[in-house]
Design a protein around this nucleic acid. Sequence first.
DNA 1: CGATAAACGAGACGGTACGTCGCGTCTTCTG
DNA 2: CAGAAGACGCGACGTACCGTCTCGTTTATCG
Lengths: 207, 207, 207, 207
Amino acid sequence: MDELENDGTAITAKSGRKLDESRDAVILDAALDVLAETGYAGMTMTLVAAKAKAGKGAMYRRWASKEELVIDAVAHMGRRDVDVDALPDTGTLRGDILAMFRPESIEMADRRLRILAGLVSMAAVHEGVGEAVTDANVGEWITANRFLIQRAIDRGEGRPSANADALARVIPAICAARSGLERKPITAEFITALLDDVLLPAVLARP
Amino acid sequence: MDELENDGTAITAKSGRKLDESRDAVILDAALDVLAETGYAGMTMTLVAAKAKAGKGAMYRRWASKEELVIDAVAHMGRRDVDVDALPDTGTLRGDILAMFRPESIEMADRRLRILAGLVSMAAVHEGVGEAVTDANVGEWITANRFLIQRAIDRGEGRPSANADALARVIPAICAARSGLERKPITAEFITALLDDVLLPAVLARP
Amino acid sequence: MDELENDGTAITAKSGRKLDESRDAVILDAALDVLAETGYAGMTMTLVAAKAKAGKGAMYRRWASKEELVIDAVAHMGRRDVDVDALPDTGTLRGDILAMFRPESIEMADRRLRILAGLVSMAAVHEGVGEAVTDANVGEWITANRFLIQRAIDRGEGRPSANADALARVIPAICAARSGLERKPITAEFITALLDDVLLPAVLARP
Amino acid sequence: MDELENDGTAITAKSGRKLDESRDAVILDAALDVLAETGYAGMTMTLVAAKAKAGKGAMYRRWASKEELVIDAVAHMGRRDVDVDALPDTGTLRGDILAMFRPESIEMADRRLRILAGLVSMAAVHEGVGEAVTDANVGEWITANRFLIQRAIDRGEGRPSANADALARVIPAICAARSGLERKPITAEFITALLDDVLLPAVLARP
DNA sequence: CGATAAACGAGACGGTACGTCGCGTCTTCTG
DNA sequence: CAGAAGACGCGACGTACCGTCTCGTTTATCG
């Protein structure tokens, strides 16, 4: 959220003690812990404060509300389930996408999607929340998919008329639905099946 | 909800005044009204009771909590956005799926998915809730899709190896993700694009 | 309560089943039981109904409210702690008053006063309730005292100027205060002390 | 209430914000206001909170229930109907007791006893409540009476065998019974009559 | 005697107060 | 002055009770 757009060299030279920035991460971690354990409704600010050995004042000095704290916490989750900076190049779209996940990546995506599910109802009320949370969590995944699919099209593996943008969302969206609505886990088998049954046919189709 | 697993031949022959079943629908309707107006967080039991001219006692006699009431309310929403009993048969899968929606159906699906989004976080806490809500809301849609896709496969329009079950979930899942996560509306154009860019290629693909 | 002032030859000749008068006593007894166990606030109509194996309908057909039921219950308590019809005549006021109590009478008066205490707050709200309840419970006691004191005056034992009416209330009032306010039990010793320290001096005083 | 038996040297050195003791009196005053206006049954915690501009949390942090709040409120009523610190010395017991009341004192005692009556039923359920409330309300009155009576005995005005302790309770107890049970007001005439008909004869009696 | 009106036990109904708990703010004390 | 602790105002939750109404059954009275 960074609601203050605080750029290091703040113009208003505040006097007095500065916010202890090391507390931020502690509080955010505590919030994620509680969120994962009890869900959004069960997460209370007092409980997070206790787990972080912090006071509620320190929390509200940083985030204006429970919702902003949660959003920030989710947005700052480690994003290492997909290594966007070093996408694989195996020669086939199937190989690329399967190689994109490191061994523990799928488990990570599963946990991430579970937390995400707990926040959807919040998005219904707060403008822009859904976008921020989605971007932080599945945005990179979609971007990576789009890159791999477009490359497959470009090298002639996929049909020329394929819409890389639409197709890039297929797997994340279906995973999100499975996790959030059906409450079933995301596994390597599930993703492989999606790939073979839905994505690859749609990309490679020759009408 | 049927929280009691009532097996037809009820053992406990209750005496005294019976639950007035006509109150159920009145309360559920009032809950849906308030839910649509104010969202989940803004919906108070007292307000629903007032709108339904009911007492809180009558509500808690039927549903153990606000959450169960909401789930039941959503589960019993009118399900007429897809007419499952009279599926079209236009000769092509594309025609079938487009014909499946009556003029107002897409708008209905959009509203339904918006409400659904507000409940996903509850599913994170309550076992089995996600399934119930999903079944009630997108279950028939998926079933209809599966039927149409399987028929297309059977008549040789789709590739024989196509997995009708997995493919049937594609459009609902992507619509749910768009509505719940991206907070963008579901339109006829969006569905048509999904159909042409994703579903049809995947079903018809000749590798 | 007899809220209908029903004079035998009712004008509206009701057809159908009559009220089962035997239920009255059962319900009143149950009410007294619960009243003694849990106090006025803890006495619920549902609990009384359960204890009397009655329905709430049968209760509200007889008494318009919980308060009227309680008043009637208290008014119909057995009044045999003081035998008003056969007052003793021992020759002295002291002997008369001590003889007025049968062995178990003091314990009875104690229980009666405890219940009475639970109703005083009700009297604060309902006009005339205090009078009815008091009459039913200490009225006879005062009447008996007044008779004995007046007789003592008349035979020259008490001073001629003594006010029998005021003096008759002394012991009941102090007992009520001890029971209701101090929550201490009424015992034979306490009454004897009251008699010797307060009442007899006041009656017999020769200024 | 001091429900914690707090021994001066508190062990638990609490950190954090302290209870704002100034809120106690505000809430108690509001409770007395509502109590006087609507009676015990009509007094709601929400109404008291609103009148005190307080939250229910602040109230329940101090008193465990409505009843304890009411008891404390009554116990802390201004006690200036009898000026215990400057008891009169007119030379006769009659003069002393009549002088003990300032002009408005009797009206005050009357109001106090009316509120007290509303709480007696609570005393029936809550251990020790009756004592606390009684002490706070009639305790000083009794103490003053005892002092005046004992002084009259000591100077030879009263009979040497008079029991000052028992006699000191006579007038307060009879006033409480008149107010609580008979629902009649306490007036100067009534107290004077009591004094002349009961107390003085009992104290001065020469058998 | 058979019909019927009403009382019966049981308990659901609308309404309302209670006591709990969470949010976001404010206050106290310590470092 | 930031930070921990926690009290503050506010208001929703879920429970319990009152007095009424409805259910299906039983029983007294009348035609």
